[in-house]
């Protein structure tokens, strides 16, 4: 019991510290691909966030609402983090509806992101939200379909059910669908159209500064870690079985790192898509995967 609780707390702390470090690693990799030195160390993102928190808080007309929403976003993100297993089923993820709850939190986080960007009445951020919503319509729709398929496939609503699941073509396809979802909703190129820097001058982030921006950026990184951690869990949980606990945890973090790196390299290789192209492309891609899932399901392979 005490071991459980202390492990849960330790891993939670690690998950809170890790995302900016992973981002630091990503920045180093990106620099390497760009043929430049890049930031001095992988802790640079943490330094940046620390710097932002040291700045004065500027409260604009809509500042109070923004502050409130940012806090909500932050706490919602932390709540979702609580539910995420890290190779070890912590006391929250053992709950028998943890997977369902987790998905609801993820959808809520996406929603609050949009809310956050509507708050300042800036034309850039308004357009940013419009784009985010357009993309979200496709993205979240298929997330729910994929999630539904997953829940039916594992025959349960908890993360614990994933352990007893076995791999099959259907499962791989569901995995592909949810992994793509994780990629798109983490706002990476080519799908970062909402904050497209040259077009919208940072779009939805335009009105934030100082500690508020620091909090929003940090929440965004934690959100990435949650999404990628979710994918990592989907991949490794069915494989782990009766491994040593520490080994399981190690395996989780390694796969999280690998997923993060694969995603970041992909985003470096491609360019930003356009707002009318993105939902179309995504829609057809998701539709194809969904149809394949259905077919394989019916064929029971």
């Amino acid at each position: 019991m005490w071991l459980d609780i202390s492990l849960t707390i330790i891993l939670l702390l690690i998950m809170l510290i890790l995302p900016p470090v992973l981002d630091g690693i990503e920045r180093k990799i990106r620099a390497k691909i760009h043929s430049r030195i890049g930031p001095p160390s992988i802790m640079q993102t943490w330094y940046d966030i620390r710097k932002l928190f040291a700045k004065e808080l500027v409260v604009t007309d809509t500042g109070y609402i923004m502050f409130f929403i940012a806090i909500t976003l932050f706490s919602m993100t932390i709540l979702a983090l609580f539910l995420l297993p890290t190779g070890f089923m912590n006391i929250f993820s053992r709950d028998n509806i943890s997977l369902l709850l987790f998905s609801i939190f993820i959808l809520a986080i996406q929603l609050i992101w949009m809310l956050l960007s509507v708050a300042p009445s800036n034309p850039y951020s308004t357009i940013g939200v419009f784009r985010e919503a357009l993309l979200g319509m496709v993205n979240e729709l298929f997330f729910m379909l994929g999630l539904f398929a997953l829940l039916v496939y594992v025959n349960g609503l908890s993360f614990t059910h994933l352990i007893s699941t076995s791999y099959s073509i259907t499962y791989v396809l569901i995995l592909l669908l949810l992994a793509s979802y994780a990629y798109v909703s983490s706002g990476r190129i080519p799908f970062d159209i909402a904050e497209a820097e040259p077009e919208l001058a940072s779009g939805i982030l335009i009105e934030f500064s100082g500690p508020l921006l620091g909090m929003v950026l940090y929440s965004n990184l934690v959100k990435r870690a949650i999404l990628y951690g979710f994918v990592a869990n989907l991949i490794i949980l069915p494989l782990l079985g009766e491994l040593n606990l520490l080994l399981k945890i190690l395996l989780f973090f390694i796969s999280l790192l690998i997923i993060w790196i694969i995603y970041s390299v992909t985003s470096i290789i491609f360019a930003r898509t356009r707002v009318d192209l993105a939902p179309k492309t995504l829609f057809f891609f998701y539709l194809l995967v969904t149809i394949l899932i259905t077919i394989t399901w019916l064929l029971r392979v």
């Binding site: 190129i189 497209a196 820097e197 491609f270 360019a271 930003r272």
Partner: peptide, 16 residues
């Protein structure tokens, strides 16, 4: 042009 299209890798290498 690459940078405007969000393709920073092209930007960096072109400038290299």
């Amino acid at each position: 042009a690459c940078h405007l299209l969000g393709y920073d890798a092209g930007f960096m290498h072109s400038w290299r």
